[in-house]
């Protein structure tokens, strides 16, 4: 079965590459998008040099971790962006009459490779931020950084899944749910504590984005030494479970449209 999904990826990549100019322009566009957000952050933080007691370098770590997580999450979860269309044009019927996993059949044919533009920029910024952050890097801390990105990608993936699932229940535009994904990408440029107690609690217990950014950052900068802070990104992975359950519930409510 795995081979089928690999076939999907290659078929999808091939068909995206058929339109070379379009692909290239979109990658460039993603790259520019990421750069403008980075400059927007840079211009503002530059004026103060810090936000609360986090230095500019540490803010940049936050920015690039969230940006990387977002772009990886969206690279794999690209199918969710077009999910309303998949439901509307009968493609979902086709998926359901196949003996494979529904989720994988949604995702693999729609992976969005243009996201490498975003990814590339985030890696570049991370490269700048690592030496500037004032963190004394060790092997363990490097591993934690990778875990933050990995867990972050999963959380963003789950957020895309969550937004897409609402399409089972309504055909209206769900653009306001972008605040969960695009919003989180934008707000994640600062350590989540700057938004105050309430927001931080929400981002700890409801949508666990602070678990992949703020708490491990405290550990990286040695403000906290409890291993719980280093493990927090792993706890964030649990967020995927309710989102998957909700998706499954959505399938049982699926109203196939047309004929």
């Amino acid at each position: 079965m795995m081979r089928v999904y690999l076939d999907f990826i290659s078929a999808n990549l091939k068909s995206q590459m058929q339109y070379k100019l379009s692909f290239l322009l979109t990658v460039v566009g993603q790259f520019i998008t990421a750069f403008t957000s980075w400059f927007g952050l840079y211009f503002v933080v530059q004026r103060v040099g810090a936000i609360d007691d986090f230095t500019q370098g540490q803010v940049t770590i936050c920015f690039s971790v969230i940006m990387l997580s977002f772009s990886i999450g969206e690279l794999f979860g690209g199918g969710f962006a077009v999910f309303a269309r998949i439901l509307g044009n009968g493609e979902f019927d086709r998926i359901l009459i196949r003996p494979g996993s529904v989720l994988l059949q949604v995702l693999f044919p729609h992976m969005d490779f243009t996201r490498i533009g975003l990814l590339l920029q985030a890696v570049l910024v991370l490269g700048i931020a690592i030496p500037k952050s004032g963190i004394t890097w060790t092997g363990a801390k490097a591993a934690l950084l990778c875990l933050m990105i990995l867990s972050g990608s999963v959380v963003f993936f789950a957020l895309f899944l969550l937004s897409a699932t609402f399409s089972f229940f309504t055909t209206q535009s769900l653009q306001f749910l972008d605040i969960l994904t695009y919003g989180a990408r934008s707000f994640g440029r600062y350590p989540f504590c700057v938004y105050g107690e309430t927001v931080l609690k929400f981002l700890t217990f409801v949508i666990p984005l602070a678990l992949v950014q703020y708490y491990p950052l405290l550990y990286l900068t040695e403000r906290k030494t409890s291993p719980l802070y280093a493990l927090s990104p792993a706890i964030a992975l649990l967020f995927l479970a309710p989102c998957l359950a909700f998706f499954r519930f959505g399938i049982s409510r699926y109203k196939s449209t047309g004929s």
Binding site: Y19, L21, S22, F23, L24, L25, T26, V28, G29, Q30, I32, T33, F35, T36, S37, F39, G40, F43, V44, T114
Partner: peptide
């Protein structure tokens, strides 16, 4: 002239948003 809606849209969005004060 250019048949790349997605590419054009994304570039235009990024540039106009940033330089019009949409971000800061």
């Amino acid at each position: 002239y250019l048949t790349s809606q997605r590419g054009i849209k994304i570039i235009v969005t990024a540039v106009t948003h940033f330089f019009s004060g949409g971000m800061i």
